[in-house]
């Protein structure tokens, strides 16, 4: 479904990603883990088109994403839940979800999707008329995920959904993500600093370190020892 081939991104002269390759197949749950500054967010932004790419290719369902303008990529079926949530603070909760349904695919079945989103996160239904900026961090994360779902994506990309949340709230969010994968069969690409939770939920993982993939494989093969070695250098 998604193939990233030898992707390189640099800010100024500073390399953020060096020849990164990864693949996500239909129905998979892939986690990309790694420490701060490893290039995880940059990887997502490159896929979504908000950072300039220096080299390599990104294919989504056979189409070359790099020839598509950034605003076009959501219409292809990619939903990006950005780091730090980035809800539309001055729009109501419901309006945020409506904006998520901007692509044609989501617009047509919005009423139906809305029921699913409210079933997954009942608090959003209660707060539908409230400004999104007045929600708590956890609720904003739920809204950011709901907003992404509203587009009826084929690939859901989640950038650090647990960031800044209490452990209890982070668990709630992870449960919801797991449910989206298992019950709705959504293909998910997750970036996380919380390695244990991320790898626990996913089917395959990649370890990203200073812009390079240093380890990849099924979760069973990414044994904790090898991971600890790659991740912490011990």
């Amino acid at each position: 479904m998604l193939e990233v081939e030898n992707l390189s991104v640099a800010y100024g002269g500073l390399a953020a990603l060096r020849e990164v390759s990864l693949a996500v197949r239909q129905g998979e749950f892939i986690a990309v883990v790694g420490p701060n500054g490893a290039g995880k967010t940059t990887l997502f932004k490159a896929i979504s088109g908000t950072v300039p790419v220096r080299g390599g290719r990104i294919l989504f369902e056979g189409q070359d994403l790099l020839t598509r303008p950034a605003a076009n990529r959501a219409h292809l079926g990619i939903a990006h839940v950005p780091e730090g949530r980035r809800v539309f603070a001055s729009l109501s909760v419901l309006e945020n979800l409506e904006m998520g349904a901007w692509p044609e695919a989501g617009r047509k079945v919005f009423a139906e999707t809305l029921d699913r989103i409210y079933a997954l996160f009942p608090i959003l239904s209660e707060r539908r008329a409230q400004f999104a900026g007045t929600l708590s961090g956890g609720q904003q994360q739920m809204l950011a995920i709901g907003r992404a779902l509203a587009s009826r994506p084929r690939l859901l990309m989640l950038d650090e959904p647990s960031m800044g949340l209490s452990p209890v709230m982070a668990d709630t969010i992870f449960d919801a993500i797991r449910e989206l994968h298992h019950a709705d069969g959504l293909t998910i690409l997750l970036v996380e600093q919380r390695v244990a939770e991320a790898l626990d939920a996913c089917s395959r993982g990649y370890v990203l370190e200073t812009g390079r993939i240093v380890l990849d494989g099924p979760v069973s093969e990414l044994s904790t020892d090898r991971l600890r070695q790659a991740y912490l250098g011990m």
């Binding site: 959501a74 219409h75 939903a79 980035r86 809800v87 539309f88 603070a89 729009l91 309006e95 692509p103």
Partner: peptide
């Protein structure tokens, strides 16, 4: 609403396909 969304957070609006 899309005008307000684009002004509120241009990056997120782009991710919505706006």
């Amino acid at each position: 609403k899309s005008l307000r969304a684009a002004a509120d957070n241009p990056e997120a609006a782009t991710y919505m396909g706006i």
